[in-house]
Amino acid sequence: MSERITRAQIPMEEMGITPGSACQGCGAALAARLAFKALGPNVIRHGVPCCPDTVTKTPQIGTVFEGGGALLTGTSRGLKAIGREDVLAVGFFGDGGTYDIGFQGLSAAAERNENILVITKDNEAYMNTGNQRSGATPKYATTSTNPVGPKSRGKEQPKKNIPFIFAAHYVPYVATASVAFPEDLIAKVNYAKTITGFRIIIIQSPCPVGWRFEPEKTIEIARAGVQAGIWPLFEIQNGHDFKLNYKPKELKPVTEYLKPQARFRHMTEAEIAEVQEDTTSKWQSLIQSDEMGKVLI
């Protein structure tokens, strides 16, 4: 499990080269900035189509949208073949490249326990193509393919529980992180660097354009999501050992997270109450798992 760090321990050196093509207030650009700071120079970064186009000081390899898991596999095996196992193959993919079109290849790479690190910036929709729904979009969110109308209340289904799905592959390390908790995020990348095998860190990355809030509110909204228990911060090792990294005495109400985002603006009191109830009950089981130190998968 990761070891707590202080803000002063966040590396000073930037690995990202700005500007990329990110919008103002882009959570994903921040996720890249923090993650690659922690990763340092000895990595090859892998990308598949997604936004934003962050440029790092390290070489970058890309492939087809659906190919992230297999590309990392190929690089990692290739590095072994040429005797360069010191170099880490890192993927930086969107939620579409992780939860949806890229899932098959990543699931297979997880099952084979490939020696790779996947970092997913989860902005809960296909933002690059204009905010269409993904398997990561939460219930009731409007997207450009879930408009609200007489037959629609936004997305009908809940968000896929991707960290637990990967944990159920019994891989060495699965973690969630948030751009609003940089020390926790960096601590998790630091830890991931010290182990081998399949590792995945899913980073909550608010998108002002898609979620429809003012760009200066990115961190506020990310923090509210974590504090409300909608985006819990945790780690799972070997599909078994569990640790909740952020445990407030009391969760903030989900309205603090939902209200500032226009993608949830249409929600009724009853719908908000449903989200609240769902969040609270999931939080209960996370607390229980944390007390036991394990998840039952």
Binding site: V64, G67, A70, L71, T73, G74, T75, R77, G78, R84
Partner: peptide
Amino acid sequence: LSSQVVVQGASRIGA
């Protein structure tokens, strides 16, 4: 699809 992408990655590294 993955077999093609795996050899693509490994070939890129020079294997």
